[in-house]
């Protein structure tokens, strides 16, 4: 099975500071992967590079069966390729309803004229109901997103990601600021999502990662320090030094 996403030899520098240093990493489909690392390890920059927000100085990011290079593509084109991203802070459109938020994310043609003459369909409505049920927001569909609780916004955002039907899901610290019950719900969501697609979760919280029960990549100073099961990497003396030495 070939890799869905292959990052190789990527480096990026901000004003002399090497945020990512010769990073290589690959992920299969389906797969659930956790990326951990201390502050400043380059986790967010790594996501920025995959989604096209930051252009690296060197390296390749290859995608899919044809190994297309994602570098040089715009953010929206990368998203249409099937890469969805959830930000650290929940970013939903707070002035619009949950239904509108989900409808916008639904996998459909994205051109302005397609959207202008888009007509609501029964299929679409059903899909929205399904997604709302999946993330547990059925009750909240007609509500304005701004009125939701922090955890509900996180789920709405995950719901929007699922609505895009991506092949690769990038999730940045989904559990931050959640109650234990909400965390559990989130874990379930992610594990379920990873059954049919690739999911990369960037997380700080070891407990949450343990619950995901998946392969773990440890980033440090912009490159991969260790990779393997959580038990394997936590036994690695370098990882211990990086985490405990600080």
């Amino acid at each position: 099975m070939s890799a869905l996403l292959e990052v190789s030899g990527v480096s990026v520098t901000f004003d002399g500071f090497r945020a990512i240093n010769n990073l290589s990493l690959s992920i299969n489909e389906p797969e659930l992967r956790a990326v951990i690392g201390p502050n400043g390890a380059g986790k967010t920059t790594f996501m920025d590079i995959i989604t096209g927000k930051t252009k690296p100085d060197t390296g390749h990011v290859l995608w899919g069966e044809q190994s297309r290079n994602l570098l040089g593509m715009s953010e929206s084109a990368i998203a249409r390729e099937g890469i969805g991203r959830k930000f650290q802070k929940p970013t939903v459109f707070e002035a619009q309803t949950v239904r509108e938020n989900l409808a916008m994310a639904l996998k459909n043609k994205r051109g302005p004229f397609d959207v202008l003459f888009y007509r609501k369909s029964a299929e679409g409505a059903t899909r929205i109901e399904e997604l709302a049920a999946e993330v547990g927001l059925t009750e909240q569909l007609p509500r304005t997103a701004g009125e939701l609780s922090h955890g509900q916004k996180q789920w709405l955002e995950i719901g929007m990601l699922l609505a895009q039907d991506p092949r690769l899901l990038l999730v940045d610290e989904p559990a931050a600021g959640m109650t234990p019950a909400e965390r559990e719900h989130t874990t379930d969501l992610l594990v379920r999502a990873a059954k049919t697609r690739a999911v990369i979760v960037v997380e700080h919280d070891m407990e949450f990662v343990r619950r995901l029960n998946c392969k773990v990549t440890v980033l440090h100073e912009g490159s991969v320090l260790a990779e393997g099961s959580l038990d394997h990497v936590t036994a690695n003396p370098q990882v211990i030094e990086v985490y405990l030495g600080r």
Binding site: S76, F93, R110
Partner: peptide, 22 residues
């Protein structure tokens, strides 16, 4: 939906981009 996208662009342009809209 057009209105939805347009207002979304007003509120958070980058997020709309990551939804795949140009």
């Amino acid at each position: 939906k057009m209105g939805s996208v347009i207002r979304a662009i007003r509120d958070d342009e980058a997020r709309v981009r990551f939804l795949g809209y140009h």
